[in-house]
Write a protein that binds this DNA or RNA. Sequence first.
DNA 1: CAATTTTATGCAATCGATTTAATATGCAAT
DNA 2: ATTGCATATTAAATCGATTGCATAAAATTG
Lengths: 344, 344
Amino acid sequence: MLQKQKVTIYDISKKIHVSAATVSRALNNNPKISLKTRELVIKTAKEMNYKQNHLAKALKSGKSNNVGIIVPFINHSFFSSVIRGIEEELTPHGFHVIICQTHENIDNEMDQIDALLNIQVDGIFMSVSKTTKNTNHIKKILEEGTPIVFFDRKKDIKGVSSVTIDDFKGGYIATEHLILQGCKKIAHLAGDFNLGIYRNRYEGYLEALKAHDIDFNSSYIIETNSKVENGASAVSKLWELDEKPDAIFSAGDYTALGAIQELKRRKIRIPQDVCVVGFSNEPFTKYMELPITSVDQTPVTMGKIAAQVFLEQIKGSQTITIEKKVVLAPELYIRNSSARNLSL
Amino acid sequence: MLQKQKVTIYDISKKIHVSAATVSRALNNNPKISLKTRELVIKTAKEMNYKQNHLAKALKSGKSNNVGIIVPFINHSFFSSVIRGIEEELTPHGFHVIICQTHENIDNEMDQIDALLNIQVDGIFMSVSKTTKNTNHIKKILEEGTPIVFFDRKKDIKGVSSVTIDDFKGGYIATEHLILQGCKKIAHLAGDFNLGIYRNRYEGYLEALKAHDIDFNSSYIIETNSKVENGASAVSKLWELDEKPDAIFSAGDYTALGAIQELKRRKIRIPQDVCVVGFSNEPFTKYMELPITSVDQTPVTMGKIAAQVFLEQIKGSQTITIEKKVVLAPELYIRNSSARNLSL
DNA sequence: CAATTTTATGCAATCGATTTAATATGCAAT
DNA sequence: ATTGCATATTAAATCGATTGCATAAAATTG
């Protein structure tokens, strides 16, 4: 184990008999430094294998070149894809991405925020946890002067930008697609209404029904967690009704999958008897033997755009707050679980 | 936008008329400081909402409390799960996790390493890219005195710890399972032999054949990239043979899936005519209508253990290099794609 | 050639916390 | 009362890079 990082601007300055200030300026292309000196410094720095100490620079400048990303879970396809997008967009700008997960727990969320502020990240990207109601801990970020960008799951806070998809539209097109397949009794497996995204998907569903003059039936709505088992039990519950549904729009792919499994168990044919649509376009949906129709959220793009919004924000004067709300269009991937006249 | 982080130990020291050194010592529970002073300092610090500046501390100590993780892609289930494990294990110790992806490209890998060393991470976790042959850039990390821990995909470098699964055994148990199902003509869809993990899975396959007195048939080996399409085309190629296989052991789940799709297209019954086993236990394998038998790599555990190895490494004196090779046992999840007498 | 402006460079302070070596205080022993 | 020693505290240096201000050297002008 040898010594770490050795060469400093002082070492360079000694070697070529100039001051450290000159070395610093030369390396930063300060025009006050003569071409001759600048070239000598740069050449010597290269020879001595000089590496700038980013910590020292960060301390002096107050900018760490790190950004934090807070998500419920890293290893959920949607979130890891957003992270990928952010990472790919920010790395070329010299930023590094620090990952935190909340496990959908607001206490963790608060801790993670504190930790990120402590290490002076230059910005925070976050998708709030399901249990987050109060937003004081988030406002604290703003008070410290650190920009935030919400993605997917946001809270409405003045001065905070966000990148989301149009969940209302997602709910609408999914439902309308089912209607166009001839379905009239469309059940909805909703997600946690504490989160805006799920409320919006539900609203979109309602609006599509209304637009096509289909009566709303409240017993067709089941609010549930996005787990496979819950999709199955939701179907069991629905099939106790006298008027069984002829379609299911699920706000998540896992519940859609569970629903399909239970429908098959009951020998109900898909899509002939019942059409099913999921949400998120999880990788598995297209791999199934009966591929599942789903609403795509373009997560990598979402991450990239969130990163761009952040870069724009910090480019401007620090005193100006840019509040930008980017809403991406969701896209319906129609597959066999709902396509009655599809030749695939 | 208000000012960032304000209160320093000097502010505290002024307020209670002691020196900054005393404040620092008091906050660090240095026994030289009298109880009275310590309590006053701590109380005042709390009142003034003091937050330690980690950058300054990092600069002085040379320890950043950041670790880097280098993976081919963040949003691959296996890698994001390992990252999750590392994150969960290190966060309680005050470390933060910085993510980099290489896109399986060695040039990116070198850049990422440079960047991580530049920001003085305290350690690097990595899974090498497929294109990595030369290891000079990795040795550079060691020369700087920064510990590395390989996970899953490693290179043999003296003094470097690693956490992997026993791929040989994985290949062995997968193949033996197929043999026990009565299969005798077992094809193997191998991964890139540049990576040790795929060579080992292949070796395990060979050994299992030998142990059960089954002749090796080289035309049953197809080296391919882990993509769904490649699984399908591998089957097409295999089914041109006079002696068609009665089982397929794929070194990856995606190729296993592609193989299954192609087998179905050809109306070949699974598992009656052909048994299929994949590798990685990707989430989708258990969701299929025909769930796929696969070898699980316990990625979250792998991440946690890698983190523990790292913590052990840095706990010891910096001059002592601990080289620890942890090998986790893979586990076969038997499902319908291979289980001829399974009642599920 | 002296006066003035430009250009190039150095000095020293700064960012905030840590740490070594030095000093002030208290108390016991002689 | 003086010496000795432990305890508590501080001054100052340090980590490495940046930057405002001062100044020396060179170039320009009258």
